[in-house]
């Protein structure tokens, strides 16, 4: 409880921030909740050694939304696969270029989630997708806004003194804090 209170007053302590290279985000919308097409996509991507850096699925009674990201260099190959897999039941939206900001660890903190969404919204930085994994909170935004987004996040997040937000491979690049 004390931790929760101190989080409300000051910055939230996290372990680090990681940034992706340039990505293409696909959103596939379908009016039925089943997602058999996505399974065949995933198999196809694995066979073609295409790395999915981000994947989220949302199912409801009225339909499903699958969002996934691939590296911009894989865009041409993925475009062909998507065209050969989607049916008329699907609507496809492509957002490019996007980048993923990974904040870790999230410690299952709703306060962290709220602060991150709130600060990005205030700065008018779009959130194209958001999901959590075992330890990370991943947010997709416009690629060119990654660094401004980190600047905003650092207003509410406290990083270890020896950590600097970093780009993941293959584009190793440092951001000076």
């Amino acid at each position: 409880m004390q931790n929760a209170c101190s989080e409300n007053i000051g910055k939230i302590r996290v372990g680090g921030i990681k940034l992706s290279s340039e990505l293409v985000q696909y959103n596939l919308y379908r009016n039925t909740p089943t997602n058999i097409t996505l399974s065949s996509f995933l198999r196809c991507f694995a066979e073609n050694r295409i790395n999915l850096t981000f994947l989220s699925l949302k199912n409801s009674k009225t339909g499903s939304v699958s969002s996934f990201c691939v590296a911009v260099n894989d865009f041409t190959r993925v475009e062909g696969l998507v065209k050969s897999h989607i049916s008329t039941e699907h609507r496809c939206k492509i957002i490019t270029p996007v980048g993923t900001i990974t904040v870790f660890p999230h410690h299952h903190s709703f306060i962290l989630l709220g602060r991150v969404i709130s600060i990005l919204e205030k700065a008018r930085i779009p959130i194209h997708a958001l999901c959590t994994s075992l330890s990370s909170l991943a947010i997709n935004t416009d690629y060119q806004l990654l660094e401004p987004a980190v600047e905003e996040l650092l207003k509410v997040l406290d990083l270890p003194s020896n950590h600097a937000p970093f780009f993941s491979e293959p584009d190793l690049k440092m951001i000076n804090q």
Binding site: G16, T102, F104, L134, S135
Partner: peptide, 9 residues
């Protein structure tokens, strides 16, 4: 490791 999920796992 620079993959936080791998570190956690």
């Amino acid at each position: 490791d620079d993959d936080p999920d791998l570190v956690e796992s």
